[in-house]
Amino acid sequence: MVPFAGYSMPLQYGSVGAVASHHHVRNSVGLFDVGHMVQSNFRGPTATAFLEWLHPPPSPPPPLSPPTPSTLSVLLNDRGGIIDDTVITKHADDAFYVVTNAGRRDRDLAWFTDRLQEWNAGPLAREKGKVEHELLEDWGLLALQGPEAAQYLQGLTSFDLRELTFGRCAFVPIEGFNLHVARGGYTGEDGFEISVPPSQTLDVAQLLSKPPVQLTGLGARDSLRLEAGMCLYGQDLDEDTSPVEAGLTWVIGKDRRESGEFIGAEGVRKHLKEGPPRRRVGMIVEGAPARQGAKIFASESLEQLGVVTSGIPSPTLGKNIAMGYVKNGWHKKGTALDVDVRSKMRRAVITPMPFVPTRYYRG
């Protein structure tokens, strides 16, 4: 167990090491306890408009029937820096489910409170109705991940999981429990994130952790997400980084890039128009692995171009992979750089992400 975001979190379970757990998720199915994540509901007649002001992407239209759509998003400060990365699920025009990071809990909840107070005092809320925020305190969140996840979960439910494609959610009956199930996750594999009421979390976790499922800890979670090219807040994202720098422009609706009214829009548009000062990139590093904080240099002039934010030896590829930020113009595929690893320059090559192809189920 290790401290993480104010919680004690499992680094690994029993004698199964992080690399073995990593391979098990890539080849079979693993279960992650991610109940430290912050789960919220937003409801009210103007909830759609509020969340479109709070986040850059447009709210997805609700389908005529479940499954309902989700979208990755970002909370931005007034300068366009990333307060947190989030997932938003639209259940109806006036009801949304939002998941945010445990390490940003205090910052996010204070931001929600202040922005709700501002919104609810405004003309639209006064005319059409206010928005309420419900914190799902102590709710469980379990991530069932891997190529055998769907087969395992299908054996526990009458719901046809083929209808639940990547980025969709539904309330699914699972052995007597009625649970919110989202198809997606943080590993690059097919899988599900399952929200569970506090009184049912232990029972559901036990139900979902029978062979071939293995309980999987933070060690494997970090290596899996980095192979999938996914960011970890606090390492790869922070409040001084815009979504354009982070390679997350795609989360912003195309029409909203030009004219959308959302918090931080001016800073985002400046980077879109003028180009960002730096860009997030993936790298393959020769020799020793480059870890967080390693400096990145131009090979010829030794001008410092940026810094590594995440780096590991990739269990799947057998190569050292890293993610970081470099000066704009040095981010093209195939660009050769040098990285200072323990006072020795190591050759690195800019490589497209994800490092390992994703296998999401899209139907």
Score class of each variant (00 low, 15 high):
267 G>I: 02
309 T>M: 08
252 I>Q: 08
314 S>C: 04
268 V>P: 10
343 S>Y: 09
8 S>F: 10
108 D>Q: 05
340 D>E: 15
146 G>A: 00
259 S>H: 12
308 V>A: 03
256 R>C: 05
81 G>Q: 11
214 Q>T: 01
152 Y>D: 00
243 P>Y: 10
257 R>F: 06
161 L>H: 07
19 V>L: 06
248 L>K: 08
236 D>N: 03
320 N>F: 07
361 Y>G: 00
179 L>M: 07
345 M>E: 08
333 K>H: 09
160 D>E: 13
82 I>M: 14
66 P>V: 01
332 K>W: 07
5 A>M: 09
216 T>A: 07
132 E>C: 00
21 S>V: 03
59 S>T: 13
280 R>F: 12
240 D>E: 11
317 L>F: 10
222 D>V: 07
339 V>M: 10
300 E>A: 14
121 A>D: 15
15 S>Q: 11
199 S>H: 14
310 S>Y: 09
114 D>I: 04
40 S>G: 06
273 K>D: 15
214 Q>N: 02
161 L>E: 07
68 T>F: 11
197 P>Q: 09
237 L>R: 12
58 P>E: 14
24 H>G: 01
313 P>I: 11
192 F>A: 07
212 P>K: 05
72 L>W: 12
61 P>N: 05
17 G>I: 05
169 C>S: 15
172 V>C: 06
251 V>C: 02
128 K>T: 02
232 L>S: 08
165 T>P: 00
38 V>T: 11
74 V>L: 06
38 V>A: 08
88 I>F: 02
30 G>S: 02
50 F>W: 02
202 L>S: 12
123 P>S: 12
184 G>W: 01
252 I>L: 05
336 A>E: 15
191 G>L: 08
149 A>R: 00
262 F>D: 11
352 P>A: 02
162 R>Y: 02
43 R>A: 06
117 Q>E: 14
233 Y>V: 14
317 L>C: 12
53 W>S: 08
281 V>D: 00
243 P>R: 03
85 D>A: 08
3 P>I: 01
150 A>P: 03
51 L>H: 00
171 F>N: 13
220 A>K: 03
219 G>Y: 09
341 V>L: 08
88 I>M: 08
335 T>S: 13
319 K>H: 12
70 S>C: 11
319 K>F: 05
186 Y>W: 13
342 R>E: 15
225 R>S: 15
